[in-house]
Write a protein that binds this DNA or RNA. Structure first.
Length: 165
DNA sequence: CCAGGGATCCCCT
DNA sequence: GGGGATCCCTGGC
């Protein structure tokens, strides 16, 4: 088993967000983003990487939160093998980035459409509470449209962020 | 240390 | 037929 604490996310929404996969309407690719909140939306990008999202909102609304960084907590040796890192690495390198964390946690499209509360292979549960003042927000990364939306959220100054916020 | 480019596949136009 | 919610390695300073 591998596990970690989510430390950085980005929100995507059908309404007024041209960077969202759902901004073009419902297609076979983005279908799961229109399901009930709590489902797992995984997509493959740049020919080599997976990204994992938690669907949000009610059924019929195309919205999700992309998980961008995790602090690794359980199964670090497994993560190291999956990431194909040598012996010199810092724990955060395992999971500080949306593609990296999918590789480290073994997430691929076989999990597409699973539910994070009921799936036998992937789950999200409450771990810690953070004050609102310890959360930072800023522009999302790697997009060209709707850049202005401050929908990247992260734990302030956490060492495992994909980039400082 | 940083900027640039290649890898490589799926889905939409 | 082409772009993309990325990553890693290279080359130049």
């Amino acid at each position: 088993m591998t596990a970690g604490m989510i430390v950085e996310v980005e929100a995507y929404h059908q309404d007024g967000d041209l960077a969202s996969h759902t901004s073009i309407g419902r297609t076979s690719r983005n279908e799961v983003m229109f399901w009930e909140g709590g489902h797992c939306y995984v997509y493959f990008i740049y020919g080599m990487h997976h990204c994992v999202n938690v669907v949000t909102e009610n059924s019929g609304t195309g919205a999700a939160v992309l998980i961008r960084a995790v602090e690794p907590l359980v199964g670090l040796e497994v993560m190291q093998r999956r990431r194909r890192l040598g012996s010199r690495y810092t724990p955060c390198e395992l999971t500080a980035g949306p593609g990296k964390l999918c590789q480290a946690l073994g997430i691929n499209r076989s999990l597409l459409g699973h539910h994070f509360m009921t799936s036998p292979t992937v789950r999200i549960e409450r771990y810690k509470n953070f004050r609102e003042t310890s959360i930072a927000c800023g522009p999302r990364i790697g997009i060209s449209k709707s850049k202005e939306l401050p929908w990247r959220l992260a734990i302030k100054d956490h060492p495992c962020l994909s980039r400082p916020i």
